[in-house]
């Protein structure tokens, strides 16, 4: 009973806090000052059609670096916590046989899913999408592979190489910005090119491709670890 009362008290407190926020919300008619700056100068300074991309990769690129680091840390902690000793692995675990449809469809669809993921992050500066959705799409392709063949193990060598090479390349490209342009993660290392073409916006497509590969590798690693944990005795 007291527990219920405490819960209701906490909920009331939260409602009180957020009611102010909700009450003060009137909807916007014009952009805020920061967004106004980005809208006026984003196309000129960065050269990417997609303003969200230019904020994620260039204006707030440092945040993205931290974000990718957090994702790497969660993947590492999950691998650490779910580590299975050799003697705990069930030698020949009986898995339910996957249906013929899933099995055959996976072989056809998985390369297409990978291609769509790569398309999404290569074109991140022109169309909606970018490294994070692209990486998630690639991880869904890996998930389909695991589901079609439950014994399929993800090669940790490949994952760790892809992951570390893209991470290091991201930082090196950022440092190149200090050397050849205005600052860390400045994209004007290469020319801005024609607005709206694939090879434009400086190094944004390259950085976003590395982010996509890194996110895809990390999410696949999480999925692979959790699905491998099914093989553990108890």
């Amino acid at each position: 009973m007291i527990k219920k009362l405490i819960i209701i008290g906490i909920m009331a407190g939260v409602v009180l806090i957020f009611f102010d926020l909700f009450n003060a919300f009137t909807g916007n008619e014009v952009l805020s000052k920061t967004a106004d700056y980005y809208a006026r100068n984003g196309a000129k300074e960065v050269g990417a059609s997609n303003l969200v991309t230019s904020i994620v990769v260039t204006y707030r690129g440092f945040d993205t670096l931290g974000e990718v680091t957090i994702l790497f840390l969660t993947a590492a902690i999950i691998s650490f916590v779910l580590k299975i000793r050799e003697e705990d692995i069930i030698p020949n675990r009986q898995v339910r046989i996957t249906s013929e449809i899933l099995d055959s469809a996976a072989q056809v669809i998985v390369p297409v899913i990978f291609m769509v993921g790569i398309y999404i992050f290569v074109n991140g500066h022109l169309t909606p999408g970018g490294g994070f959705p692209g990486g998630a799409v690639i991880a869904s392709g890996v998930l389909l592979m695991i589901m079609a063949n439950p014994k399929f193990g993800i090669s940790h060598t490949v994952i760790s190489w892809v992951e570390s090479i893209s991470g290091v390349a991201f930082v090196i490209l950022g440092v190149l910005g200090i050397l050849f342009a205005g600052g860390f993660l400045d994209n004007r290392v290469l020319g801005l090119g024609d607005f709206g073409k694939l090879f434009s916006a400086g190094i944004i497509p390259i950085i976003y491709s590395f982010i996509g590969l890194k996110v895809g590798a990390e999410l696949s690693n999480i999925l692979g670890t959790i699905s491998h944990a099914q093989n553990e005795k108890n």
Binding site: G130, A136, M147, I226
Partner: peptide, 23 residues
Amino acid sequence: APDVAMTEAAIGSGLTTLIFFYV
């Protein structure tokens, strides 16, 4: 917000659900 919609559709309803089911 098409970027956010794509990410949410791939991650929120795809990967998260499947991780829950694995556990």
